[in-house]
Amino acid sequence: MTTFITQDTVTTKYWHTLEDGRIQCDLCPRFCKLHEGQRGLCFIRKNLNHQVVMTSYGRSSGFAVDPIEKKPLNHFLPGTPILSFGTAGCNLACKFCQNWDISKSREMDALMSMASPEAIAKAAIAHNCASVAYTYNDPVIFHEYAIDTAKACRELGIKSVAVTAGYVCPEPRAEFYQWMDAANIDLKAFSESFYHTITGSHLDAVLDTLKYLKHETSVWIELTTLLIPGKNDSEAELEAMTQWVVEHLGPEVPMHFTAFHPDWKMRDTPHTPKDTLLMARNIAIKNGVRYAYVGNVHNKTGQSTYCHQCGTMLIGRDGYILSDWHLDESGHCLTCGTRCAGVFDAQPGQWGARRQSVRISG
């Protein structure tokens, strides 16, 4: 049960006291060590009265209904609308952050929307959303709020989707993912030097989360890598990454390679060429990844889903709009009968590319 200190501040349980009197937060592998009154790097977790509290429970930077393909998830209820929200702050320090106005916010005034978990679940029903996404910033840091919302959603038959970097400790990870139905994990690169110098985190913890999700849960997972010119887009790194995915996660985990645009602290880095994305997709397919996609560019071939057995286009995509559907009611190819990996309704959704802002109260 969530214990409130104030309307938007709740107690947490993943922390311990150090010998010098500071409190160590044990939610993520950053292990922030906090003096009284001090906030962690994520900003919304704080040492208050000798315990770690979350200071933004029930407060959001906003709500919107998005196409689920925008998360991106291509194999989880395609074509359906998803109610999306986040808070402020982040437990990583990515220099290329493309949601920096939210994830790097140090102003609680950025969290203008107030909504209880029950109100969010009811809003999803009211807007005909099949699922709710915990996104925009990393839901790891609003652990308690996300879990309570996921519980409320599950009671109403609404699915929960985590959009996250996967940088979380094992015990809170297990608690969090028992309430999630799907996740898109941001595999930012495949080198420790990139993770350490550009994101302020470590690769091994993310890989551990990926193996945990694949082999110890029923959560549907897809991976996204934002390819940054000269940083994580070499053929050698993409070879190593895709080979690792097939070996440790299996060939059916979809991979999304998306285009970088200059932002935050990397404004001098150029946009990702489309040819780089297509190269990454080709390397993934060559190494056995059955479902590899390109994103943030217009390319129907690279955004569509194909049967790995006979090559038939199963789900055509033109941006976020579904253009073709060649699956039967249980997700099998209508040409050869091979099952397409994923979670599918009998018929695709028809939401399209719309984005609709939503106000929630209560």
Rank of each mutant, 00 (worst) to 15 (best):
S330E: 15
T305R: 00
G331D: 04
K265A: 12
S201H: 06
T335S: 14
T217S: 07
A182P: 03
I82W: 01
L213T: 04
A205G: 05
A341P: 03
W351N: 04
N128Y: 06
Y167S: 04
R281V: 01
I185T: 02
A165E: 10
Q98E: 13
R281D: 02
E19I: 10
I221M: 05
C307N: 04
E69W: 03
L213A: 07
L83H: 06
R154D: 12
V219N: 00
H202T: 13
E36L: 09
T217L: 10
M108P: 06
F194K: 06
Y167N: 08
A182Q: 02
E175C: 06
V219C: 01
T258S: 15
I82Q: 11
C25I: 05
V53W: 00
S61D: 03
R355T: 15
W15S: 01
H248L: 07
A124R: 00
T164E: 07
T199D: 05
H332D: 07
S218P: 03
A259P: 08
N137Y: 11
S323T: 15
C90L: 08
Q178Y: 03
I120K: 03
Q303S: 08
V253K: 01
V289N: 03
A205V: 09
P251H: 03
Q309C: 15
G331I: 00
M114S: 13
D26L: 14
G302N: 03
H143V: 10
C42R: 09
G166A: 06
D268L: 14
S56N: 12
N49I: 04
C340L: 14
L111D: 02
C310T: 12
V245H: 05
M1V: 14
K71H: 02
G352L: 04
P262K: 11
F194R: 11
K104H: 14
I141L: 14
L327H: 01
V53E: 00
M255L: 15
I158H: 01
Q303P: 07
K300S: 13
R106H: 14
K71L: 13
A88D: 05
L111I: 06
G319R: 10
I23P: 00
F257S: 01
H256Y: 09
M114Y: 11
E252W: 10
L203F: 05
N282F: 08
G21A: 08
D208N: 12
A124T: 00
E222G: 00
S103T: 14
K33T: 12
L238F: 10
S330V: 12
L327P: 03
L92V: 13
L334H: 11
L277W: 02
V219P: 00
T225S: 08
F176A: 00
V168F: 12
A189I: 10
K104S: 15
Y306W: 05
A205Y: 13
H326S: 12
F76W: 02
D26A: 15
L187Q: 04
L226A: 08
L226S: 04
